[in-house]
Design a protein around this nucleic acid. Structure first.
Length: 424
RNA sequence: GGAGAGAUGGCAGAGUGGUCGAAUGCGGCGGUCUUGAAAACCGUUGUGCCUUAACAGGCACCGGGGGUUCGAAUCCCUCUCUCUCCGCCA
């Protein structure tokens, strides 16, 4: 959530930022917020004034009772009641105004960083880095869903039977490959200074709100009605919410956490060829890295995280590119996002395998995650996260790019984890 | 699922209608002492909002919401959460 004070003090900047993100009617929204805020301040001033009067009257009445002057006290009581009625009226209006203000504020996406390119959709993203040879496979090369069937390692049909589409069953070497990747990613992260967290995979509403999934993505998360809990769409939610309502010490920053969890996404409304095989699932495994950083350091941290994720892909010997997302393609909460895309040789397309973002104060404002600076002032920290990595598309790319006549070659860094070199 | 207890400042823990934003202890910060540290002693120490250029002033917050009252941390209602015991159980 954007900070009200920032919007009021930086009206033009806010409007421009929202427009860059292709947020509709940015100007009207901002005008409305500024107007509501003015109204709010006025009401607060009036209400406080009356409360002040009531408070001093109460004190006087107390004194009068003590000294036995009951009649005078009764008089003041009446006066107090009048003030109270007036205050109740004001407070009702104030409550409505604040509610309205909150409702609007919550709809606004984060503002993009100055370096974010203009643009509407994925086509306008800026490729900032590319690595590796794009393999040329023979015409007989198979897509991963066919390879999965050929080697009997992923069973999509049984997943449909057990649960539904988008819930694959991994078998044999397929299952072991999942475990290997998870362990490899966690080991890499912890070797790079991240603390491993195993969080709950169901969270309450406050957590969903804290990282920005609610109310924006309500309907995209699975919800357990009986207990009012949400299945997490990413480990970012519980791991970042650890710092909800927390005031950190400046020297504790940056905080580096990582965690593996299954992720659950309803993906309501997305169908078609993009969802074939492992490309888009309702349940998948992911290792996430999360950092809480000092505002002055957060962009250095973002670069460090980007480098880290790139390093993982290099170790897995996958060709990839890094794109800086344009304003229109960025997520709701992000100020700057890099996507890492692995080239799938059989599908002949780039698959997003990681997304690394700086949220600046957008999440921490909701979370009330702050730190005390050297002057003893509390200020909002910055939060960042990235996938490191999401498994399904990595598996898809590994299967497709590494297919040979002999079988599928496992990258050497993974062999100690899988215990086998070939899927055959 | 049944029964009970509880929710107060960073933590522990007092406070059952008026000057309580809240005793006390611990912790934190500053100082005295010390070559330095520890101990001891002294002082200080919550958050948010509104007005203000600033000094300063005001308001709110004792789990959330509502009520009683001139006045609520304290009384009433309600919700949520936590703990204990029993039951069930990986």
């Amino acid at each position: 959530m954007l900070q009200l004070q920032f919007i009021v003090e930086n009206k033009e900047k806010t409007i421009r930022g929202l427009q860059k993100k292709h947020f509709q009617n940015a100007e009207q929204f901002v005008e409305k917020i500024i107007h509501l805020d003015q109204e709010r301040r006025q009401l607060i001033a009036q209400s406080n004034d009356i409360k002040n009067k009531i408070n001093s009257l109460s004190r006087e009445i107390g004194e009068l009772f003590k000294s036995g002057k009951k009649e005078e006290a009764e008089k003041l009581k009446q006066q107090s009641t009048e003030y109270k009625n007036k205050e109740a009226e004001l407070d009702k209006i104030l409550k409505d105004v604040e509610q309205e203000l909150h409702n609007v504020l919550v709809l606004l996406p984060n503002l993009p960083h100055d370096s974010v390119p203009e643009g509407k959709s994925a086509e306008d993203n800026e490729v900032v880095f590319q690595y590796g040879e794009i393999p040329s496979l023979p015409d007989s090369a198979l897509c991963h869903w066919d390879l999965a069937a050929k080697y009997d390692i992923i069973d999509f049909e049984t997943g449909v039977k057990l649960t539904g589409a988008g819930f694959p069953v991994y078998k044999g070497k397929g299952a072991k490959l999942q475990r290997a990747l998870i362990n490899f990613f966690l080991d890499q992260a912890t070797q790079n200074g991240y603390t491993e967290i195993e969080p709950p995979i169901l969270v309450n509403e406050a957590s969903g709100f804290g990282t920005g999934q609610l109310p924006d993505k309500d309907g995209q998360m699975y919800f357990v009605n009986e207990d009012k809990l949400y299945l997490i769409p990413t480990a970012e939610v519980p791991i970042t919410n650890i710092y909800r309502d927390v005031i950190l010490k400046e020297e504790e920053l940056p905080i580096k956490n990582c965690g593996y969890t299954p992720c659950f996404r309803r993906e309501a409304g997305s169908y078609g060829k993009d969802v074939r095989g492992l490309n888009r699932l309702h349940q998948f495994d992911k290792v996430e890295i999360v950092q809480i950083a000092h505002p002055e350091k957060s962009y250095e941290v973002l670069e460090e995280m980007r480098e880290y994720v790139a390093g993982l892909l290099k170790k897995l010997e996958l060709p990839f590119r890094t794109v800086k997302l344009c304003g229109g393609d960025m997520s709701f909460a992000s100020a700057l996002t890099y996507d890492m895309e692995v080239y799938s040789a059989a599908q002949k397309r780039w698959l997003e395998v990681s997304s690394v973002s700086n949220f600046e104060t957008f999440q921490t404002n909701r979370l009330k995650c702050r730190f005390k600076d050297k002057k003893g002032k509390t200020q909002l920290a910055h939060s960042l996260n990235g996938s490191a990595l999401a498994l399904p598309r990595i598996v898809a790319a590994l299967l497709e790019n590494n297919q040979t006549e002999k079988g599928i070659k496992i990258p050497s860094v993974l062999v100690p984890y899988t215990g086998f070199e070939w899927i055959d």
